[in-house]
Each structure stands twice: as structure tokens, then as C-alpha cells.
């Protein structure tokens, strides 16, 4: 059951952006607002790193958030 559930979640996560991406083509001059700091994921990587690693230690999960981690003893 777990495997089935995981597969469904994975398919949804992978499939959704792929489905949407096929029908969009945003021109360069239309992307100005996407470069605004409020539209950038993790605009401050150092703050993001601090946040992620505290969570790594307090919780049993890691990864999948867009930041790369390593060199920690929080196994």
C-alpha cells in the first residue's frame, strides 16, 4: 500500500509541472516580474541554510527543498 501511495504522489509531483509546461511559452519581456525578489525561491540562501539545517536536526527528514546540504553529523 505504501508503495502504491508513494507512486501516486510521485506521479502527481512529477506530472503536474510537465503537463503545464507544454502549453506555456513566456517571452523574455514578460518575465520582468519573475525576477523580483518576492518571486525568487530562497532569495537569501544563507538564511535558508540556517533554517533548513535546524530542521534537519530536529526532524528525521532531509532534502527535496531545493537547497543542497552536506557535511553534517545529523544522520
Amino acid at each position: 500500500m505504501k508503495t502504491v501511495y508513494r507512486s501516486i504522489v510521485l506521479l502527481l509531483l512529477i506530472g503536474a509541472p510537465a503537463l503545464f509546461s507544454g502549453c506555456t511559452r513566456v517571452q523574455p519581456w514578460e518575465r520582468e516580474s519573475l525576477a523580483d525578489p518576492i518571486m525568487i525561491f530562497d532569495a537569501n540562501p544563507i538564511e535558508k541554510g540556517i533554517e533548513e539545517h535546524h530542521l534537519d536536526y530536529r526532524e528525521g527528514s532531509a532534502g527535496g527543498t531545493g537547497a543542497q546540504s552536506g557535511g553534517c553529523g545529523c544522520g
Binding site: A35, F41, G49, Y57, G71
Partner: peptide
């Protein structure tokens, strides 16, 4: 102690959107 002392060891690399 172990966890505390390494709690902030992290490669702070964000993946740029562009």
C-alpha cells in the same frame, strides 16, 4: 551535544531559478 555542535553545518547553496 553531538547534534548541537554540528547543527549549522550546511552547504548554503540555493538553486537559482534562472
Amino acid at each position: 551535544k553531538f547534534g548541537i555542535r554540528i547543527a549549522v553545518m550546511m552547504l548554503w547553496v540555493s538553486l537559482p531559478v534562472f
